[in-house]
């Protein structure tokens, strides 16, 4: 029904009137024919509507091509702050389908309220039998006032990672290196001051050597790391150890830099 109403509404162009009227109401046209036939009264003929007489040309001109659609789109207001509303208003003619980008199919005329979060150009495309037309409306969104209150987004895990750092080992040994002592002291300090945290120490090895022996070696590395923490005052019961051997490498290249990264005692928070 809306569709037909729209078509009727479109017929405001005078030139199209005769054609559209003929198309719309055959009943009226047949009445005119009957009168004409009676007036002339020469012979009765059939199929008169298919074969109009020359005199009928003034009454029924040949149908013109379908008219091109016309579209109009406005936004009110055109400048807003983030979070404010904008009213989009659109009208079209000769259109059978209307689409607004980002909104989808809409009636051929209407009003819609939108809340853009950033500057947006709304773009409308109207399609009809006579082609298509488009229209656009630009809404400028001014940025909101910046929040000046700093937000703490660091999670307990991130804080743990930042304060409890992994230590590294020399090749084929579980001895704590001198450069690991300072790291371990910092790790222990953090853990002592956060007595609720439980920790898992993973023992890791580089890819060289045998899987089973590396599991034993990784166990020794994890144990050595644990002993150092316990010596520095972390309660034994808060620490669990697991050897990953060479099964869970951090780095898979075949060079000393990568192997060093994989020879470690690694800390994670226990779940």
């Amino acid at each position: 029904m809306i569709f037909i109403d729209v078509l009727n509404g479109v017929r405001v162009i005078p030139k199209r009137d005769t054609y559209m009227q003929e198309g719309r109401s055959r009943q009226v046209k047949r009445g005119i024919f009957t009168i004409v036939v009676l007036l002339i009264a020469v012979v009765a003929f059939s199929g008169c509507n298919k074969k109009p007489l020359p005199t009928q040309a003034e009454v029924l001109p040949p149908p013109p091509p379908p008219a091109a659609p016309i579209a109009q789109l406005t936004a009110t207001p055109t400048v807003i702050s983030a979070g404010d509303q904008v009213q989009l208003t659109w009208r079209t003619m000769n259109a059978t389908s209307v689409i607004i980008d980002g909104i989808g199919s809409v009636p051929t005329a209407g009003v819609k309220t939108v809340t853009p979060t950033q500057s947006t150009t709304y773009h409308l495309v109207a399609r009809g039998e006579g082609g298509s037309a488009d229209a656009s409306a630009r809404v400028t969104v001014n940025a909101p006032v910046a929040v000046t209150v700093p937000v703490t987004t660091i999670t307990p895990e991130e804080e743990f990672k930042a304060n409890v750092q992994d230590i590294f080992f020399d090749y084929d040994t579980a001895d704590i290196r001198s450069d690991a002592q300072a790291t371990l002291q910092k790790d222990a300090n953090y853990l002592v001051s956060h007595p609720d945290i439980r920790v898992v120490i993973g023992g890791y090895c580089d890819e060289r050597g045998s899987n089973e022996y590396n599991l034993a070696l990784g166990q020794n590395r994890a144990d050595a790391t644990k002993s150092a923490l316990v010596e520095a005052g972390v309660a034994d019961g808060r620490i669990r150890v697991v050897s990953y051997g060479k099964e869970k490498p951090f780095c898979s290249d075949q060079n000393e830099q990568c192997w060093q990264l994989n020879r470690r005692g690694g800390f994670t928070m226990a779940r």
Binding site: E212, A216, Q219, V242
Partner: peptide, 25 residues
Amino acid sequence: GSNQSPAWSSDGAKIAFSSARSGKP
């Protein structure tokens, strides 16, 4: 929590393996 590398005796009666339950593997 640190048991690995099992081995069967050939009569199937026993299994040897490595464990760090007493401290070291």
